[in-house]
């Protein structure tokens, strides 16, 4: 099995949930940001309700969930944009 190790920086409440600002996720299935999110949510189920709306960046650039990633990429995940006023 091919394991891709991705370094992920998390923000907001995800930092408390993960216990650290920087975590490493082992991606065993796939190579897109969606796969990273899948593993993140599985590892930290409290984030599940945000799954389709998280702010995700690859190398500091906001990216779609279908964006391909490699071990060299820097991924960041933050809770969804809030819209109340």
């Amino acid at each position: 099995m091919n394991i891709v190790k991705i370094n992920v920086t998390v923000y907001g409440r995800y930092k408390n949930i993960a216990g650290n600002q920087t975590i490493q996720l082992d991606i065993t299935d796939g190579n897109t940001l969606r796969d990273v999110i899948d593993v993140f949510v599985k590892q930290y189920p409290m984030t599940k309700k945000d799954k389709s709306r998280m702010i995700v960046t690859k190398n500091k650039m906001y990216s779609s969930y279908d964006t391909m990633i490699t071990e060299e990429d820097e991924v960041s995940i933050a809770p969804p944009v809030v819209s109340g006023g």
């Binding site: 923000y11 907001g12 409440r13 930092k15 702010i55 960046t57 500091k60 809770p79």
Partner: peptide, 20 residues
């Protein structure tokens, strides 16, 4: 970047995001 403040979790973050 994006400033995120979470009262309940006592988190104050600045997320560096670049132009897409």
């Amino acid at each position: 970047g994006l400033i995120i403040y979470d009262v309940w979790n006592q988190c104050f973050d600045s997320m560096n995001i670049q132009r897409n």
